[in-house]
Design a protein around this nucleic acid. Structure first.
Lengths: 227, 227, 227, 227
DNA sequence: GATGAATGAGAGTTCATTCAT
DNA sequence: GATGAATGAACTCTCATTCAT
């Protein structure tokens, strides 16, 4: 319940830093609870209690319950993209090469429940908190989608892949994976031999990329094997 | 959906038949409001008011607010699948033929906001109402997914398509479409030239199926060019 | 559920009389329900349903729910006393003779649950319906108590019993019996060997009257000084 | 009953110690209101208001309205019996000696309206709150009745009193008093010269005990039949 | 800073009563 | 007469937010 101090980066004696860590502990607690019960069914009291402080203390750091969920998304959404996007946009050549290079990175990220918890939360609470969706769109989706579209566009232009609508190709690429990650626990029929956990994700990546990449082959009639 | 009028024996044809229509009117009102505001932020009073009755009247037809959302999903989930599933399971030959045959049907269904509203609702409220998700799984997902897996399995066995994991191929097929339908309004960056509405869906279907079907080509070009 | 027609006193064919019997059937139903659940926890709908009519029909016979309970007590309280009281007041001689003569009558009456149900109800609902208590006082208690007091008064005057405060002697006489009847099912510790039902009442009558009558003996010191 | 102040270490001696007193203040308010209006007719808001707090505050101390009435009975029923019962059970000799010794104690207790209010409440609310009656039976009636029965049993065995059914004799003894206390305000016809208040109780005790004790005289007149 | 008692607006639900049919 | 759909006031209980300590 109070094993949250880390041997923090700075020079303060161990318990000193509690104070600065509070907001993060509260956000952690809130994320857990929102994930388990939804925003509206989670009490400010529960959040505070799980973070090991009093209800009143929460209001020292956040002006309202709404502010908590916004801070939550804000925190998660800040450091995500950056250089990756730049790499994608600058790449020249067969997009599939880049995709395959990034698979391990994506897979790792998407396997971490703490990371996927936030977009799942956004999906659920977007109706009542439009700003969450806005943040996510502006800072994540709105950067990644266009970057990938650009990637495909130059891939088409360079003749590396079949001529496809680049924006839709992006959706074709990401759909199955996000689907799996965001909705599996709601709609997911367990596939055979898939234990709860994330074995499914690797299998999906494998099959989906095989089909998708093959589907992008530029000249199905060419006769001359590419490669 | 509106086959409830009886050939009422008596005088006023407008005011009569309210009684039988009430539950459906309430469910319609509830679906709208849940979609706009979410379940927890919607008041029983609001539902009643929008259906043109008093708060108390709702309890004449539903024992609780929870019962309303369940009836909602139940109503939507009842008549869905049936023969389609059977057709899919019995099909023999290249799966892609069947897929292309069903595209117009699917596209039409997924373009109707009243139809997609329910699964969207289920996604959002599943945490607090697990039974909704259960119903959806049992009656829809759990029938469609296996049927399509069977379709791919025999397609592989018959040599019509490349050997792929059938269960994952299903996800690869459906992911982008469901993604689009369920999450577009949350995450969706409007693609260029897509007006709100559903132009996007046709474009997505087109691109995705092109890639997906091409990607299933058996032994694409290795030693003997097909053709 | 509708086995309530009795071969009524008058000349009407069996089902005709339903109409006049309605109020009584409603009162019967109400008495049962009030006894089981209390007035406030009984709905008008329950009463109507148990009487086999609709909610609206009840309001044809009674202007309100309160009117039902009042009619209930009114009906029960009307025919009670009358000649018995007169007999008591006119009696001359040893009161105990009269008491013993009346025991079987009392015992019979108090063993009928339909009869004791009403005073029990009055006890419980008096706080919220003072008029019930008023009626009971005016029409039953207020007649019986003074009559018995008169009985004892002349008994004392005639030297038949020890000189006692007649009003208190009445309470001394009735207390244990009413206590038993009205409160047994609330407070009653089952006495040994008493099966639910009313075996207890006879045993109580026996013991109590023995003690009470002996206790009224006029001259405890006369022939055999005790102690 | 008011031994709850702590020697509070700090400044304001009036405003402090509210916190610990609150539950009792609420129970006091609730008892008054339940007595005046009955449980079902009393609002949580009324209770809170009379105790000087807000509706919500009540729920800080009690989980439900039902819990309030249970706490009420619990509080009243806790410290009741104990040593008195033991004294009664251990006594040897003429029961009437002990009875007369306890009269002042009983009379005092039964004259305090705060004390009798609780069993009156239990009588009324037992139908809807069976646990109240249960508590009362287990902790009060079930201890006192058997103790007194034992007292009479040994009195009979020792030849101090006439041979009577001890369990019924207990009822004969207590009936009039409890009757008076519990039902006087419902059924009670004011005896002549009895002002509201409790003059009646002393008069009743006097008359009833005279008759009851005389009635227990062993072998009253065996050798010389009266009449 | 930190606490948690207190507030009060509002939610879901019930039910006596009315009234069109 | 008889019905039961409909109303709306009231009730119990919850919870984000405040503030004295």
């Amino acid at each position: 319940m109070s094993d949250r101090e880390e041997a923090g980066g700075e020079a303060s004696p161990k318990f000193r830093r509690r104070k600065e860590a509070r907001p993060d502990e509260l956000l952690d607690a809130a994320l857990d609870l929102f994930t388990e019960q939804g925003f509206d069914r989670t009490t400010v009291e529960q959040i505070a209690r799980r973070a090991g402080v009093s209800k009143g203390a929460l209001y020292l750091y956040f002006p309202s319950k709404d502010a908590v969920i916004e801070a939550l998304v804000d925190r998660a959404v800040g450091p995500v993209v950056g250089e990756v996007v730049i790499q994608i946009e600058r790449f020249e050549g067969d997009p599939r090469v880049l995709l395959k290079r990034f698979v391990p990175l994506f897979a790792a990220r998407l396997s971490d429940p703490r990371i996927v918890a936030v977009p799942k939360l956004v999906v659920r609470e977007a109706v009542s908190h439009p700003r969450l969706a806005e943040m996510y769109r502006e800072r994540v989706i709105g950067r990644v989608l266009p970057a990938l579209a650009t990637l495909f566009r130059q891939g088409v232009a360079g003749g590396h892949i079949r001529p496809v609508d680049p924006e839709m190709a992006v959706r074709s690429l990401l759909g199955p994976v996000l689907m799996h990650v965001l909705l599996a626990d709601v709609f997911g029929i367990r596939a055979e031999g898939v234990t709860p956990g994330d074995i499914g994700l690797a299998r999906l990546f494998d099959t989906h990329l095989t089909i998708f990449c093959a589907g992008l082959d530029p000249a199905p009639v060419q006769e001359a094997p590419h490669g």
